[in-house]
């Protein structure tokens, strides 16, 4: 049952990812993206990472992609964009990038270090510890506890990084003096 569901979600998420690139209009690409994110959430549930799955749907599919959709519609980009595409020397570069990425991925999947992420996946003790944490603290507490104790510095730094990005966006979007501004 779990295997069947995994194959289903995997096919939908990979197919959706292909659809994002090949979709005929930005709206189609966006919906493919939502399908990919939602089936990734399904895979998280199969791994019993319920909280991650909920946050995946809530933040990515439910908020960020809706903002994307909002922008696509507000700027009236919902039409077929293929006429806008220009193929030149850039397409050669993209072939090189895709090839390099693919070789890294193949190396990662088939290489010698692939089968156990530092032994964590195969380690039954680690899995049991996770089960115990979920049973004791609930699905949210099991993530929140290490996040706000062991990894609190990394957590705060990421928060700062996002703040920097937001401030930068505000600065970029602000009209620059002159007659148009304010």
């Amino acid at each position: 049952m779990t295997d069947t569901l995994f194959v289903l979600f995997a096919v939908v998420s990979v197919g959706g990812a292909v659809g994002v690139v090949t979709g005929r209009s930005p709206v189609a690409s966006l919906l493919f993206m939502v399908a990919t994110l939602a089936s990734l959430a399904g895979i998280y549930v199969l791994f019993e990472a319920h909280f991650l799955a909920a946050i995946q749907v809530l933040i990515y599919a439910g908020a960020i992609m809706v903002l994307f959709l909002f922008v696509i519609m507000l700027l009236n980009l919902g039409h077929d964009y293929r006429a806008d595409l220009k193929f030149g020397s850039w397409s050669l570069l993209s072939v090189v990038v895709v090839g390099l990425t693919a070789s890294v991925l193949v190396q990662g999947i088939t290489g010698s270090e692939a089968d156990d992420f530092g032994g964590h996946l195969a380690d039954p003790a680690a899995a049991a510890a996770i089960d115990l944490a979920v049973a004791e603290k609930g699905a949210v507490g099991a993530i929140a506890d290490p996040l706000f104790t062991d990894y609190v510095v990394a957590f705060e730094v990421i928060g700062l990084l996002l703040l920097v990005a937001i401030v930068a966006a505000v600065v970029l979007a602000k009209p620059r003096g002159g007659s148009e501004g304010a």
């Binding site: 919906l31 939602a38 749907v57 809530l58 599919a61 439910g62 959709l69």
Partner: peptide, 8 residues
């Protein structure tokens, strides 16, 4: 999470 999808 699921009600956030209702907007689509």
């Amino acid at each position: 999470a699921l009600s956030s999808l209702a907007v689509y």
